[in-house]
Write a protein that binds this DNA or RNA. Structure first.
Lengths: 225, 225
DNA sequence: TCAGTACTTTAAAATCTACTGAAGTACTGA
DNA sequence: TCAGTACTTCAGTAGATTTTAAAGTACTGA
């Protein structure tokens, strides 16, 4: 009887550990983070995460076997996506636990930003208020597919790669707020550095779309206008 | 420049993976679950989880290195506890993701309860309403230390081991609701089986104290009255 | 039908993990 | 001071994981 209880518990915790194992590897976490932005093909994920193709495929398989992802084949391409919105929520709760408990996370981030001539974070609430009021030009510097999958209302899609040659579109007399995938994505950091170099008053919003949404704020989907 | 970005991302995801690795093992998850009920010594944890002492100590060390636990030495005993309330929340969100995504969890639970002559779950809301209204006798069948660390208001502490010889304390003319550590703890299952065998009308509340608390409902701490 | 593309699978090496028993440490009470 | 207790650390082994290159599969368009 006691041993039947033990078998039950062991079986249950083994199931829970399937999810734990899935998120126990840095590369898989990066893939999960990317997929929180929207669906992607294997190649796109591999390139973005700096991994080999075979390796990426195997990590995606592991995530799919933990039921965190779903895959869909269309022609030559296999598109992976989160199996459920709850997966992104869970990833965000892991991230926030790591931020709260692991001093190293803050330390690494601080050092990285310092090395980039003091891109000090601005008061978040104040920035968010400006964004909400439309008092600033909001730039989504992610690739266009991610913008299409969901973006902040009123945000302009200017992927980092195009920013330099599309500077003319940006008014010089308004502050600019750039955002990307979240606090550990560097696209907005680079955008702000570049804009400041050109004389703009530019800030970085640390939140990504998923964070914005998690705060219960509106998110718009659709192509570039 | 691009390689500095890569190093930053790698370093960050490695940190996140520390937490993932900590929860990637069934035994560590069971220990975490137990510690959600309150602080424990190494021996108590080893015994409850059915692990060797050296093994338990090493798992606890791993959890502590991921900053999920804290340890305090008092005399001969080392008491481990959650480093933060957020750790329990995170564990609960892992559990709920596993329940939502892994059909096996429901399947294993269903089979286990079926084998125990159909301890079918009762409508949860209805049960919770009765508990809140005090229309039933509520039994906390966990060990007394866990009751002391926090219990449902109005609950009687009757550890499973004492239940048989303390039956006289239970009114025959009222329904009884027993709870323990949560949906995958078997103490309440055994209590209800026993009570039904003695002619009581008894039900099992799947929620544990942490779940109750997570619903924003009151929890009381303190010794047995 | 055939070359080319996107992806998956296999195989093998290097590295990590989990568990056990034995030894070691730190504290208590006699 | 000494035996005993609670816990940690060490060493060794069995097994799992991660990564790479190479082979295999499934689809497209010519």
């Amino acid at each position: 009887m006691a041993s039947r209880n033990r078998r039950f518990k062991t079986a249950i915790y083994e199931q829970f550990a399937r999810i734990g194992k899935a998120i126990s590897n840095p590369s898989r976490l990066e893939l999960l983070d990317l997929l929180c932005q929207g669906p992607r093909t294997v190649e796109a994920l591999a390139k973005e995460a700096g991994l080999g193709l075979a390796n990426t495929s195997q990590h995606l398989k592991a995530l799919r076997e933990a039921r965190l992802l779903e895959a869909e084949k269309a022609g030559l391409y296999v598109t992976y996506r989160l199996a459920d919105e709850q997966v992104c929520q869970f990833y965000r709760s892991l991230r926030s636990l790591a931020e709260a408990r692991l001093a190293e996370v803050g330390e690494i981030t601080r050092r990285f930003l310092e090395a980039r001539q003091g891109l000090v974070p601005v008061d978040r609430e104040q920035l968010l208020a400006k964004v909400r009021d439309g008092a600033v030009t909001v730039l989504d510097v992610r690739p266009p597919e991610e913008y299409a999958a969901g973006h902040l209302p009123g945000a302009l899609s200017v992927p980092l790669k195009e920013l330099e040659r599309r500077l003319a579109e940006l008014p010089h007399d308004r502050e600019i707020v750039a955002y990307c995938r979240g606090p550990y994505c560097v696209l907005a950091v680079e955008a702000v550095e570049m804009l400041r170099g050109r004389g703009y008053v530019a800030f970085r919003l640390e939140d990504g779309v998923a964070d914005w949404q998690a705060r219960g704020l509106p998110v718009v989907a659709g192509e570039v206008h």
